[in-house]
Each structure stands twice: as C-alpha cells, then as structure tokens.
C-alpha cells in the first residue's frame, strides 16, 4: 500500500478525534473508587470513634497526607500518559515527600521516645498491608483502562503511576477505618502497602499500555 493511500484513509477518519485531557481519568477513578467503597463498607467500615478522631491532629494530618497523595498521583498519571513528558516526574511528588518528613518530625517531637517503636509498629499493620492493595484493585483496573486511550512515552512508568494513584485511592478509604494515626505508622505501613500496587501497575502497564 502506498503511503498516499494510507493518508487518504487517515484523512477520511479525521472526524473521529477527541481531545485527550486525561478526561477519562476522573471517571475511572470515581468508578473504581465506588467499587472499593462498597468493598470498604462491607468488609471494613468506618471506625467507631470517628467523631472523636476527626478532632485530633494526627487523624487530620493523616487525611491530608492521603488526599495530597491522591491529587499529586493524579497529576502524575495524566502527565505520563502522553508522548511528550513535561517536567520531571519525581519533582511532582516532592510536596508529598516534604509533608511526610514534616509529619514524622512533628510526631517525634510530640511523642516521648519510649513510645516511638510502638507507635510505628501499631496494632493493625497486617490489615493495613492487605487492605490497601485490596481497595486499590478496582481503581487500578479502571485507571489502566482509561490510560489505554493515551499514548504514554513509557508504558511501564505510566502503569506505575496508575498503581500509585490506585494505592492512594485505597489508602484514602482505609484511613477512615484504621486506628493507627501516628505519622510513624503511616509513613511505614501505608508506604509499604503502596509498593506492590505500583509494581503490579508497572508490569500491567508494560503490557496493556502499549500503543
């Protein structure tokens, strides 16, 4: 087939284009999040002392952390979904890193050193490690599906970003069940729980996000 013939076919298909603003990403996140919300309500549920928790600075800081992660991961996902990457990926996550450092520092100052170890280990680390990935599953599937309409410069990296976003969504839900509010706990176990989700996202992205 001659190239001019192919061009004729492409021109005839001109009307099929729509704008990519990662427009399907919010919808995918909402849909996946809704599924996980159902799972959350059935399986875990909001903690009983939520009314008391929301007035504590630790809980509030925890919520800010997961929401910031959600926002930054979303931006990262969208930025990595096109052939030309604007700016450094890591730099986008710096505010989150800074907030973590700040939160941990405050905790170390506010808490007697004898309690540091127990705060870090917490009471529900195993549930945290299993719940966040579980709650991230539906969002991950939906986000990867949405990203297939894009053209990521690196499919693996885009998949990893999808994993990060999905994990953040899972963490945002889990935070309302989890009794361990200490930044030491969050910085350890929430982050650890994110790693397998990012890895799975990267592996899946490599396959599913090729274009």
């Amino acid at each position: 087939m001659k190239t001019e013939n192919l061009v004729a076919a492409l021109v005839a298909d001109n009307g099929s284009g729509r704008r990519w603003t990662g427009r399907m990403l919010p919808a995918a996140l909402a849909l996946g999040g809704a599924v996980s919300l159902c799972l959350f309500i059935v399986d875990l549920g909001v903690r009983d002392d939520i009314a008391q928790a929301v007035v504590t600075w630790r809980f509030d800081l925890k919520v800010v952390l997961v929401l910031l992660a959600l926002a930054l991961a979303f931006g990262l996902c969208r930025a990595l979904s096109v052939p030309v990457i604007a700016g450094s990926a890591i730099r986008r996550l710096l505010p989150l890193g800074a907030l973590f450092v700040f939160a941990v520092t405050i905790e170390l100052i506010a808490t007697p050193s004898a309690l540091w170890a127990s705060r870090l280990v917490g009471s529900n680390s195993l549930i945290c490690l299993t719940s966040i990935p579980m709650l991230a599953l539906a969002p991950l599937a939906a986000i990867l599906l949405a990203l297939r309409s894009g053209a990521p410069a690196s499919p693996a990296l885009a998949g990893a970003a999808a994993g990060l976003l999905a994990a953040a969504a899972g963490a945002a839900l889990y935070a309302f069940h989890c009794f361990d509010d200490s930044p030491l706990f969050v910085a350890t176990w929430y982050v650890l729980a994110t790693i397998p989700v990012v890895a799975v996202g990267a592996l899946a992205g490599r396959r599913l996000l090729r274009w």
Binding site: L6, G17, R18, R19, S149, W211
Partner: peptide, 9 residues
C-alpha cells in the same frame, strides 16, 4: 497511523 490514532495527546 500512530500519529493519527493518538493525535489527541
């Protein structure tokens, strides 16, 4: 073809 299919990006 890729340019065409992904021109929205």
């Amino acid at each position: 073809l890729a340019m065409h299919l992904k021109r929205e990006t």
